[in-house]
Simulated scan of single mutants.
Amino acid sequence: MGPKVCALVQGGEQVTGVGWSVGAVARRLGIAPSTLRTWERRYNIEPSRHTEGGHRRYDETDVARLELMNRLILGGVPPEEAARSALAAGPEELAEPPAPSSVVPSGPAWGAGGNRLAVPDPTPATRKLAGAAMKMDPVAMQDLVWESISTVGVARTWQELLTPVLVGIGERQAASGRYVEVEHLLSSCVQSALSAVLAMADPPLTTRPVLLACAADEQHSLPVYALGAGLAEERVGVRVLGARMPYRALGDAIGRLGPAAVFVWSSMAATGDPLPLADLPATRPAHRLIVGGPGWREAGLPAGVRRVHAYQDALQALRSAVGAG
C-alpha cells in the first residue's frame, strides 16, 4: 500500500496527495512557482516527499522552511543567507511565528515572481496598485488612481490606496536598497493625477487661497499635491509651489497672494529647521501658518505656528483657515 493520503487546506483550496505541490506552495507563499524552482536549484531548498507516480511534494516541514526563508527575504535578508538560515532552523524556529516587532512587513506579499511588495492591511485595490507598481506599468497605475479618485475622492484615495502602497515600497526599498525606480515611477504617476485634479478643478468658492509648499531643500512633494488636490476638489482655492521652495521665494509668494493659510511640509530633520519660519512676512488680514511632516522639531516652532501630524488633520486645519470647515 502506498503512502497515506493527506488533505491540506489553505485559503479554501484543498490539496490532496502526499504533500504540497509546487503550485500550491507558491500560492500559499504568494510567489511564482518559478521562484520556488529557482530556490531549489540555487539554494537546495527542495521537496522531501514523492508521490507513487514520482512527483515531488513538499511536506509541512518543507513548507515551514520556505515560509521562514520568504519572511527573511521580505525583511531584507539576501536570499542565499535566508536559505542557509531556513535549512539550519530547528523545529522551534520553524514553528515560531514572526515577532510583531520584526522588520518583516505586515500583510501578505503581492507582485510577480520575486518582485514582491508587502502592503500594510492590504485591500483588493492596494493589491492591484502594488502589482502594477512592481511591474512598472504606468497605464495601469494611472487607471487605478483615477478610478479611485472618481469613486471615493482624493482624500480617501490618498489615505486608503496611495499611502499604503507608497509605505510598502518605501519599507521594501529601505530593507533591500532596491526599487528606487519603482518608487519614482509610481510617484510620477500619482503626481500627474493629482496635478490633473488641480488643473481641472471647478472655480474656487473661497476668496483667499491656501499656499502649499515644501521646505527649502525638501524634495518629497507628494503630500502637498495630495493636500492641494483634496482642497481643490472641495472648491478651496490653492496654490501648490512644490518641492524645494526657498523661504525667500515663499515669502514673496505670501506677499503677492495674501493667503488665508500657508502650509509647509518637511519629511526629514535635515529640512525641518523651524527658524526660517519666523522670518516669513505677516499679512493683513493675518494668515495661519501650519507645518506638517515628521521633519519638524516641534520645540523650536515660532509662536502661533501649528503643527499637524496627519493628512486629515491638515485638511481640517486648512479648511478652517478659509472658513470652509
Rank of each mutant, 00 (worst) to 15 (best):
T151A: 14
A118E: 11
T151C: 01
G113C: 04
P138I: 13
D121S: 12
S148F: 02
D121N: 12
K128Y: 03
G131D: 03
V119G: 14
E147F: 05
M141C: 14
W146F: 00
T123D: 07
N115Q: 06
L117Y: 06
P122L: 08
A132R: 00
L117I: 11
R127K: 06
M134W: 04
W146Q: 08
P138S: 15
G114F: 06
S150V: 04
T126C: 11
G153N: 04
I149T: 11
V139E: 13
V119N: 12
A140E: 12
A132H: 05
A118Y: 13
V145T: 07
M141K: 06
K135H: 08
D137I: 01
A130D: 09
A118Q: 15
V139W: 09
G131L: 02
A133M: 01
V145H: 05
A125N: 03
G131W: 02
R127I: 13
M136N: 05
A112Q: 13
P124H: 08
A133I: 00
P138N: 13
G153P: 04
P138C: 10
V119H: 13
K135V: 04
P120R: 12
T123E: 09
W146R: 11
V145W: 02
S150W: 10
N115T: 01
N115Y: 04
S148W: 05
P138E: 12
V119L: 09
W146K: 08
M141N: 05
S150D: 12
P122G: 12
P124A: 08
T151D: 11
K135Y: 00
P124F: 03
A125M: 00
V154L: 09
M141H: 05
V152R: 14
M141V: 06
M136A: 11
R116Y: 03
T123I: 11
E147G: 10
T123M: 10
A133L: 00
N115C: 03
K135P: 00
N115V: 03
K135N: 10
Q142F: 03
P138R: 14
G131M: 13
D143W: 02
P122W: 12
D137H: 11
D137A: 15
T151Q: 11
G114A: 14
Q142T: 14
S150F: 05
V152D: 07
V139N: 09
P124K: 07
L117G: 10
R116F: 01
